[in-house]
Design a protein around this nucleic acid. Sequence first.
DNA 1: CAGAATACCTGCGGGC
DNA 2: TGCCCGCAGGTATTCT
Length: 272
Amino acid sequence: MPELPEVETVKRGLIPELSERVIQKVVIRQYQLRWLIPKSFAKDITGQTIRHLSRRGKYLLIYLDTGALIIHLGMSGCLKVLDLNTPVLKHDHVDIVLNHHKVLRYHDPRRFGAILFTKDCPLQHSLLSSLGLEPLDDNFSGVYLKQKIQNRKAPIKSVIMNHHIVTGVGNIYATEALFLAKIHPEKPACSLTNAQCKQLVIAIQQVLKSAIEKGGTTVKDFVNSEGKPGYFVQELCVYGRNGLSCKQCSAHIQTVRIGQRCSAFCGNCQRL
DNA sequence: CAGAATACCTGCGGGC
DNA sequence: TGCCCGCAGGTATTCT
């Protein structure tokens, strides 16, 4: 499932394929993604040149001459650049045909993803304007985290997955970062010490950077823009390892549900 | 305002 | 073999 490192991996793969290409045509087979794609979508972007790509949290931003595409991969979305005659598969919802006989194809079985066009700066868009800091930004620090969580009794895991505080950290990397920082996922956020906040920020940054280097995590179906999996799954210490022994202390990895989400942890290494 | 619940959707695995 | 059920998960939205 695409989180920040996976979106970053996709973005890096797409840059050389998309830069300065002209959008010649748009084919939409399924309008109903997370939100309905408006009828004007094709007209809005056809004829425009792709100028550059960037990322904000888990959102991929494709800047055009005028405005930008905002793309979220949801749970199961994937973007690939394919030859124009590549057969269309089930769940291939959107094709953006480019002027080098290739097509940017959006595939998303669960349709939790989104594709939208904005005429304005995408960072001003309501989806992005209220997002918290990028986790790899220098301003994301223990001090920042401490200040943001001081009044929150919610489990620390829920808080670091709150995109208004820090954006792009999903279930996999929140789970892993808490293990690295030796903090129990259910620990009330406001009870973290300054030192723990600092440790947690370092852990989040470490796990994200490492995952980007490995091309992301392929648990089930993530593939990058070239159709290849990521290799960070080998580095996972707790996520997806319920019942297996902890790589640090050999205790059994347990799971607990926090905010409707499955959270794995080592009860010995991670303390409340 | 914080936090919990809900809705959206499909593929897959387990149980019968 | 095949059906039904539960689960998985990101996040905007709605409810308490």
